[in-house]
């Protein structure tokens, strides 16, 4: 890493407002607030453990390239930094098969509001030692602590993958195909990503008369909605032509912004209490509220 955890902690310090940025793909600069960056660089890769340790400031593209040499990958969205992707907490298009991105974070060393290093989680792929601070950090937008380095769980890259389209009902495909990696639907066309043994993929494609295509669909960039998977069917009438929905997951890539929903008061209170416990003076990423940011 290009910066030690201790030096990173010293930069964050113990008083005064401070913000953290990754590659800035998601963060708006806050005026008058000092900005720090997490250490960057890969510490180690253990292919037989399916784990990687890197600075939170490492670009995801860099770890993708390094892992590809071992035939592995990590379920973290590329484009920004590892810490930024974790802090935003969104999973990628392959969540249906890979599970949520949050499950990839095994251990994090973060700097707390007092400027001290805290370890969350543990290095092994299975661990229930103590309360799960890793889950708390994912999606916390840097409001509870600044992540310095992480250990992530990797997964093998499939030997074969192929996108397909179909005019069949997406739920029919979700039921019939064995663990498709992704099923996307815009109300008219269904896209399916299948991975695994090429003969199995070919057999499934034939059985469901899928048509191979080079890529999945263009995703509308207006807003990222979150719906119960059983409610996605309503989009066909409500938003024709303006969405691509992740079937079986519930993320909707929409042309319009995500609707604002009234917060659950019990949870708003719990969020406030957590923030107070972790950052009593509100110095970390001031102005950001993890509950209302989306």
């Amino acid at each position: 890493m290009d910066l030690t955890l201790e030096d990173f902690a010293a930069e964050v310090g113990s008083s005064g407002p401070v913000a953290i940025a990754g590659l800035g793909t998601r963060s708006r600069p806050l005026s008058d607030v000092r900005v720090v960056h997490a250490p960057s660089g890969i510490e180690w890769i253990e292919p037989a453990e399916m784990t990687i340790c890197c600075g939170a400031g490492t670009p995801v593209d860099e770890i993708d390239a390094a892992l590809a040499e071992h035939g592995q990958q990590v379920a973290v969205h590329p484009g920004g930094t590892v810490g930024g992707a974790l802090a935003v907490g969104q999973s990628g298009l392959r969540r249906l098969a890979y599970g949520a991105m949050r499950d990839a974070l095994l251990q994090a060393n973060y700097v707390n509001a007092a400027g001290k290093l805290v370890k969350a989680g543990g290095p092994t792929v299975k661990n229930v030692s103590g309360f799960d601070l890793c889950r708390l950090l994912v999606g916390s937008y840097g409001t509870l602590g600044f992540i310095g380095d992480v250990i992530l769980r990797t997964r093998p890259k499939a030997s074969f993958e192929q996108w397909f389209t179909s005019d069949r009902d997406p739920w029919e495909l979700l039921s019939g195909l064995f663990r498709p990696t992704s099923v996307l639907w815009n109300g008219a066309t269904t896209w399916v990503l299948l991975e695994g043994n090429d003969r199995d993929v070919a057999e499934m494609a034939e059985r469901f008369s899928l048509t191979a295509v080079p890529n999945g669909p263009e995703l509308p960039g207006g807003g990222r909605w979150s719906m119960a998977p059983s409610e996605l069917i309503s989009l066909k009438v409500a938003s024709p032509g303006s969405f691509v929905a992740e079937i079986g997951v519930g993320v909707v890539h929409h042309t319009r912004p995500r609707p604002v929903r009234p917060p659950d008061l019990v949870q708003a209170d719990l969020h406030a209490r957590i923030k107070r416990e972790f950052d009593p003076t509100g110095r970390l990423n001031p102005g950001i509220d993890a509950l209302s940011i989306r």
Binding site: V138, R261, H271, A290
Partner: peptide
């Protein structure tokens, strides 16, 4: 309260995730 839910990305922190294992 319901922490998490059927939808994949509820607003706010992953309180579901911290409740599991508590």
């Amino acid at each position: 309260s319901i922490l998490g839910g059927e939808e994949p990305e509820p607003d706010g922190l992953d309180l579901r995730g911290v409740f599991v294992g508590s």
